[in-house]
Computed example of a mutant assay.
Amino acid sequence: MKQSVSLNAARAFIEAHFNEPVTLAQLAALSALSVSRFATVFRQQYGSSPYRYLCGVRIQRAQMLLLEGVPGSVVATEVGFFDQSHFGRHFKRCCGMTPSMFIQQRAAVNAGKHGAARRQAVAENFAAQCEQTSAVLLGHTDPLAERRIQALELTRDTI
């Protein structure tokens, strides 16, 4: 139970400071665990690594900003990515589409300029992409993608 409470503090810290550089050492200190133990327990508790969880929080916030009409270059820095290219890579990995495609699909659903069949097809496609995003954020990806992500995480010293 104590680990769950300390992990909740780390998770709350990630959600409050997603737009800043966050290190595993900071999160482990909040949880009163070693860095390696924290990473293991976090993955067991939440189904994804701390870095993947942080990226998921950033992408969710980015989606909201994009739908509000904020330019992609501004969104990238607002949510804590180094630059627009870094943001675009993570967005595409998580959502299966680029930020501009995300905006276009959402606009097509909302505009209602197409016939009912077209609107339905766009809505179904968007729903499928959202389900894929949720699966990625929850840590359910194909094994090859999982191995690539693990390899990247091993080389990172900050989140």
Rank of each mutant, 00 (worst) to 15 (best):
A111D: 08
S6G: 07
A10K: 03
G56Y: 02
G80H: 02
R52V: 03
V41P: 05
H86R: 10
G56Q: 03
K113L: 15
E20F: 13
A29G: 10
A25S: 12
L54D: 01
V57H: 04
R89Q: 08
A117W: 02
E78C: 07
Q104R: 11
S36D: 14
P99N: 05
A117G: 09
Q3H: 15
I103V: 15
D83P: 05
L65Y: 13
Q63E: 09
G112W: 10
S48M: 10
G47R: 01
I14F: 05
F42D: 02
V109T: 10
Q60E: 13
S4H: 15
P21L: 08
V109Y: 05
M101H: 11
L30V: 04
V57G: 00
F91N: 00
A76Q: 02
A107G: 02
S4Y: 14
A12M: 10
A25H: 06
S34E: 12
E78I: 06
Y53I: 01
A116F: 04
G80L: 01
F42L: 06
Q3D: 15
Q45V: 07
L33C: 08
F38I: 03
L66S: 06
T40Y: 10
S73C: 09
G69P: 03
S6N: 10
M97N: 09
G47N: 04
R93T: 14
R106G: 06
Q84V: 14
A76L: 01
H90S: 06
V5W: 15
Y46D: 04
A39M: 09
F38Q: 02
A62F: 01
G112K: 05
V74I: 13
H90D: 12
S4Q: 15
S73I: 13
T40P: 03
A32R: 14
M97T: 08
V22I: 15
S49E: 10
E78Q: 12
Q105N: 14
A10P: 01
F87W: 06
R43M: 04
H17L: 06
S100M: 10
A108D: 06
C95E: 07
V70M: 11
C95D: 08
V70C: 06
A117I: 06
S85K: 11
G112D: 03
A39G: 13
S100I: 09
R118E: 15
S34N: 11
A32E: 08
S4P: 08
G88E: 07
C95F: 04
F38T: 00
D83G: 09
P99M: 03
Q60A: 12
A111M: 12
F42P: 01
N19G: 02
A9W: 13
S31I: 06
F82C: 14
E78L: 13
